[in-house]
């Protein structure tokens, strides 16, 4: 690899998304980026996974919402299950101002707004993360776990270990807050 990239690492789209040239995004037609979302180095988004029997239907969309950050080496893939003999992928939804930490693996069905997912956390298949949740570093959420809004979860397997403060997400620059500044700083 050259010591310094001649071009900027990030491609900026019309809607303000910043996508690293070194990220891995598969099945782009199935992925909707909400705008002003940053996908960093070696992060991987899998939009290519869908039901094999009917590949025409776009049932499998991985959709990070607006103003979110997918940190380096994170993996986002739609949840899947064997249902009546067919292996099915289900659409995944990620809200606004979501920070997916480095090396995190996300197979959740949905993630709300103002959610922070710690580095190395694993969100099992069909997890549902409500608004204003903090997932501690290295937490492992078993498949299907529901995390109510305002909770802090951690541990392996993850349990609710606390609550975020009432001011969660209101203080600019703090955890769970508006990520616009942070995305602006990414270059």
């Amino acid at each position: 690899m050259p010591p310094k990239a001649p071009k900027s690492e990030y491609i900026e789209t019309d809607t303000g998304n910043k996508v690293s040239r070194r990220s891995i995004i598969l099945g782009t037609p199935h992925i909707i980026l909400g705008g002003r979302t940053a996908i960093q180095t070696e992060a991987c988004l899998r939009g290519d996974l869908h039901r094999l029997s009917s590949p025409s239907t776009s049932t499998s969309t991985s959709a990070p919402g607006g103003t979110s950050v997918i940190a380096p080496s994170a993996l986002i893939r739609p949840p899947s299950r064997l249902h009546r003999g067919t292996y099915t992928y289900v659409a995944q939804k990620i809200g606004d101002h979501v920070l997916v930490g480095e090396r995190a693996v996300v197979e959740a069905a949905s993630i709300g707004n103002h959610v922070v997912i710690g580095a190395g956390a694993v969100l099992g298949k069909f997890c549902i993360i409500k608004d204003g949740v903090k997932v501690l570093d290295g937490a492992v959420l078993p498949a299907g776990m529901v995390v109510p809004s305002g909770s802090v979860v951690g541990g392996r397997p993850a349990r609710i270990v606390g609550e975020v403060g009432e001011g969660w997400g209101m203080l600019p620059g703090s955890e769970g807050a508006d990520l616009r500044e942070r995305i602006r700083a990414i270059a």
Binding site: V164, G165, E166, G167, W168, M170, L171, S174
Partner: peptide
Amino acid sequence: LYPLEHLL
């Protein structure tokens, strides 16, 4: 001692 967002 509390982080600011926990205080009222």
